[in-house]
């Protein structure tokens, strides 16, 4: 296909990718699961960016969310429960040329993988991180997750979960060197697409918490939000998301928030009564560990050999 370059000259690309080029196996998520919409958004963002499928890697842990790589037609790594981030960071560290996506969930990221979550935010490697947060363990069949709302009955807490849910936004925003924090709901296509696209374009780790419906185990959580739009607040800003009026009509509670204002973002995140949507924080200038860790990758074999001999010299007698 072709397009116009910045200098108005015609750019002829030998490859043009359609949505189909990013589609892998037929998704096996339940009917009505919010994951379908997220996958569609990912395919679209890949298409928009014309990512080369062979240069794209989707990394996941274990859980419903973590099936995502199988539904991509790119490279993928479906690893261990909670451990998507270290693997993704290792890939990016050696191969900065690859476009890395991480699909994880509330159990995978906020519970068993919590240590990696904290540190991956600090590393701030250039990747897109989508947390599919449905507030329940789905794949293992309805156990309490760190974000299960209070009093929701589960198979591990039949009389209702005991503890108030973890607030992933305040935690993430509190981590030094965090550079992009956003939140969306799975059921608004425009917001979903725009925020995931911005997370992808962001230089650093684009963290998106996606409130995602699980109609099989905790239908009420999603329903309650859908029925009460006032419980959500859409954050708009010229440096954040800009949505058209159709979206604003769906979220009557909306207002401006400057995503460069970290204290304001923390305040918004800490307010449990309203669920903020949009970009809470964005700092394109935060240092990225992939740039620090990949220095030296271009060294030739001859240079390495010379370096090795220098190292031997340090011990020579």
């Amino acid at each position: 296909m072709f397009g116009l370059k910045g200098d108005w000259s015609l750019e002829v690309k030998d490859r043009y990718f359609t949505l189909e080029d990013y589609s892998g196996a037929e998704p096996r998520w339940c009917t009505g699961c919010g994951d379908h919409g997220i996958l569609a958004a990912v395919h679209r963002v890949c298409r928009d960016a014309q990512l080369e499928p062979e240069k794209t890697v989707a990394v996941s842990g274990i859980g419903c969310s973590s099936r995502l790589p199988h539904y991509m037609n790119t490279y993928g790594f479906h690893g261990l429960h909670g451990r998507a981030l270290p693997v993704a960071c290792g890939i990016k560290s050696r191969r900065p040329d690859l476009d890395v996506w991480v699909a994880t969930g509330d159990g995978d990221c906020f519970s068993i993988g919590a240590a990696h979550w904290v540190h991956a935010m600090r590393y701030n490697m250039d990747m897109t991180m989508l947390v599919f947060d449905n507030g329940i363990y789905g794949l293992t069949k309805k156990q309490t997750s760190p974000t299960t709302p209070l009093d929701v009955p589960t198979n591990t807490h039949p009389s209702g979960s005991l503890l108030p849910p973890l607030n992933p936004l305040t935690v993430t925003l509190g981590i030094t060197n965090v550079s992009f924090v956003a939140q969306i709901v799975d059921w608004n296509a425009q917001l979903r697409h725009q925020v995931i696209k911005m997370a992808h374009e962001h230089k650093g780790t684009g963290f998106v918490r996606i409130i995602q419906r699980c109609p099989v185990y905790v239908e009420a959580i999603g329903k309650a939000l859908q029925n009460e739009p006032a419980r959500m607040r859409l954050l708009t800003h010229e440096f954040g998301v800009e949505v058209d009026d159709s979206v604003k009509r769906l979220f009557p509670n909306h207002g401006e928030h400057d995503p460069t204002d970290l204290p304001a973002a923390l305040k918004i995140a800490a307010d449990d009564s309203v669920l903020p949507l949009g970009i809470l924080y964005r700092n394109p200038d935060a240092p990225c560990y992939d740039q620090m860790s990949s220095e030296g990758l271009e060294m030739s074999a001859q240079e390495k050999l010379a370096g090795l001999n220098q190292a031997f010299d340090h011990f020579a007698i």
Binding site: P86, S93, H116, H119, S294, G296, M299, E303, Q310
Partner: peptide, 22 residues
């Protein structure tokens, strides 16, 4: 000297996970 990097990970699991990613 040979273009290498030592990654001090957040824990032992992350250390091997990082290596596996590479």
């Amino acid at each position: 000297l040979t273009g290498g990097f030592v990654h001090q990970a957040e824990d032992e699991i992350a250390a091997i996970g990082f290596a596996i990613g590479a």
